[in-house]
């Protein structure tokens, strides 16, 4: 793994949906060639953080720097250039339903490059082979299973050989074998292409297998960023609850509870 300057630096990031604060003073760095897993329970702010990294949301305060671009203040052209170096695989694949799988995968190349049609066709087929989807290029997304859609989405995300790949819940909804294959593929992509990969997941087994470092979020705050061993050995009870799949059993603040029930605030 190359460790030079960080490719992602997030400083003092705060984010709100209306009055509700989602991310609280989030700070972290990701090195080039690193696989970083962002982990946390539902509602912990994982997806919001991902959306900020993709510059889809504007933070209340704080800064995000990706590949030397100030994402929060960048103009549209700079963001567009940056996005060409980034691939995103969304949970459900996010393919265009009116296009075939092949057309979906080729779309970024047709939009952003001047490559010959033959080169584009072979590139798309190479990625489909990589995702075990050979022969599916002429099918419509509606004709694919959930796992296939996810892999087709990943094929599109890596079609431009991005420097940085974001992957939202790679294992969710996949059978165990496909899930393990996808983990192995993530490791191979990093090793062969020196990709930096940020994976958002709550699948522990997958996180422990692929991560160089894991950032654990709780209620919008970073509980810990550390190696797999550091996370496993953490004495933070919330992390242990997450690892050991224990329910939170949080103590109830009676006053706040009644206020929430009666006024909807608090």
């Amino acid at each position: 793994m190359t460790t030079t300057s960080p490719i992602i630096t997030v400083k003092n990031l705060n984010s709100h949906y209306g009055e509700r604060q989602i991310l609280k003073n989030v700070n972290f760095c990701v090195q080039q060639g690193e696989i970083r897993v962002i982990m946390g329970g539902s509602g912990s702010g994982k997806s919001t953080l991902l959306n900020h990294l993709l510059a889809l949301l504007v933070p209340t305060s704080g800064s995000i720097n990706i590949d030397d671009v100030d994402v929060v203040n960048a103009d549209a052209k700079t963001l567009s250039n940056l996005r060409q170096k980034m691939g995103v695989a969304f949970q459900g694949g996010a393919l265009f339903s009116s296009m075939t799988v092949g057309e979906n995968i080729k779309l970024p190349l047709k939009h952003h490059t001047q490559l010959d049609e033959n080169t584009i066709d072979i590139m798309a087929r190479l990625k489909l082979e990589l995702m075990n989807l050979a022969g599916f290029e002429d099918l419509m997304p509606a004709e694919l299973s959930g796992g296939m859609l996810k892999r087709a989405g990943l094929a599109r995300a890596v079609i431009m050989d991005p420097k940085l790949l974001f992957f939202d819940e790679p294992s969710a909804g996949l059978d165990p074998v496909t899930s393990v294959e996808l983990d192995e593929l993530i490791l191979k992509l990093r090793d062969a292409m020196n990709m930096t990969i940020v994976v958002v997941t709550h699948e522990l087994e997958s996180a422990f297998k692929i991560a160089d470092k894991i950032t654990v979020l709780f209620d919008g705050e970073i509980a810990l960023t550390g190696t797999v061993d550091e996370i496993k050995n953490s004495d933070d009870i919330r992390i242990q609850n997450l690892i050991n799949r224990r329910s939170r059993n949080e103590k109830i603040n009676a006053e706040q509870y009644i206020k929430r029930l009666t006024t909807g605030q608090g």
């Binding site: 490559l115 033959n118 080169t119 190479l126 292409m193």
Partner: peptide, 13 residues
């Protein structure tokens, strides 16, 4: 030092 998928696709063709 580096070859991307477009380079690989070129070799395949």
């Amino acid at each position: 030092s580096y070859i991307d998928s477009s380079g690989i696709a070129t070799l395949v063709e």
